[in-house]
Design a protein around this nucleic acid. Structure first.
Lengths: 125, 125
DNA sequence: CGGTATCCCATGAGATACTG
DNA sequence: CAGTATCTCATGGGATACCG
């Protein structure tokens, strides 16, 4: 690759399948759903309580998307009335490890980020 | 932590500062802007050509956000007419390494993801 | 060249009501 | 309990025109 070739990975382009997958599993709510399910299996309403800010509609959409991509499994327990349990799939666990790495990155770099923000806001203030 | 404690990292909650930082530097376009700038420094219109799908407005917004958080630097070259160059900051480079890890994850798990999608789509068809 | 300003629309997501 | 259906609204982002 010489210095006139286009930089950047094609996998990150908005229409690329890899990028589409990232968008579907790392969206606003799925990040958190995945995270709480890594701790333990939970039922629908337990998830709602674990993530108080989420709405029914968003939780349902997030669960369906994560299930469709194989990150979690939906288990219908044959009780009366029926109960539904969600559990993390192995591949979902590997994704969560990367999310944890992102979280560690934010923690390590937060001081530097806040200094940058102060400098920026001071100029354009 | 026993098995009745709430699962999940508080840092991922929607109003947490760490989460807000992730949202600001990993949004739809910033991911790609960061990526192409990791290869080489680029001017505004060079960035537009490197990311054809991006609009002026989105590019400007993305660059400002990345600059404010210290991920990139905006350098005004004193030429005639004035030129502006954007370059990745060290902290931006460390972030890009994590994004690369995410991309590798998608590549490794794409076959399994596609199988999961087929199973899901076959049932709810 | 490197933006800013304005209008417009599609999507995400909250609130609320209802159902097997 | 575990959703579905509907309405509404805020935000992101595309298109276009203009500016120093």
């Amino acid at each position: 690759m010489n210095d006139t070739s286009p930089a950047g990975s094609a996998l990150l382009q908005v229409d690329a399948p890899h990028r589409e997958l990232l968008d579907q599993v790392l969206d606003k709510w799925s990040l958190q759903v995945l995270d709480v399910l890594c701790g333990k299996d939970l039922r629908f309403n337990e998830l709602r309580r674990a993530i108080p800010a989420i709405g029914q509609k968003s939780l349902t959409a997030s669960l369906r998307r994560l299930e469709r991509n194989g990150m979690i499994e939906r288990v219908v327990l044959q009780t009366r009335p029926v109960a539904v349990e969600y559990r993390i799939a192995p591949v979902g666990n590997t994704l969560n490890e990367l999310v944890d790495a992102l979280l560690r990155w934010t923690t390590e770099n937060m001081p530097e980020v806040e200094q940058a923000r102060e400098r920026f806001d001071a100029v354009e203030g």
